[in-house]
């Protein structure tokens, strides 16, 4: 018999921690995926943000 008896509360807490962990992991994956899609898009440009693009710098 283990020294620490598992209470039903521990299972609920574990479910909550696991759920939050997986949600945060999914959030990271989504933000990363979105960023990759946006920056690899053909019409992606930083010109609107005030940061000079390579083309603008060349001119």
């Amino acid at each position: 018999m283990s020294l620490i008896r598992k209470h039903e509360m521990h299972e609920r807490r574990f479910s909550r921690n696991l759920g939050v962990g997986l949600t945060l992991t999914a959030l990271i994956a989504i933000i990363f995926g979105l960023t990759m899609v946006k920056v690899t898009n053909d019409d992606f440009s930083l010109s609107g943000s005030g940061v000079p693009t390579q083309t603008e710098e060349a001119n």
Partner: peptide
Amino acid sequence: TFDEHEPQFGDYF
């Protein structure tokens, strides 16, 4: 004493 308020993730969902 444990607070009875221990929701599962499913409760939030």
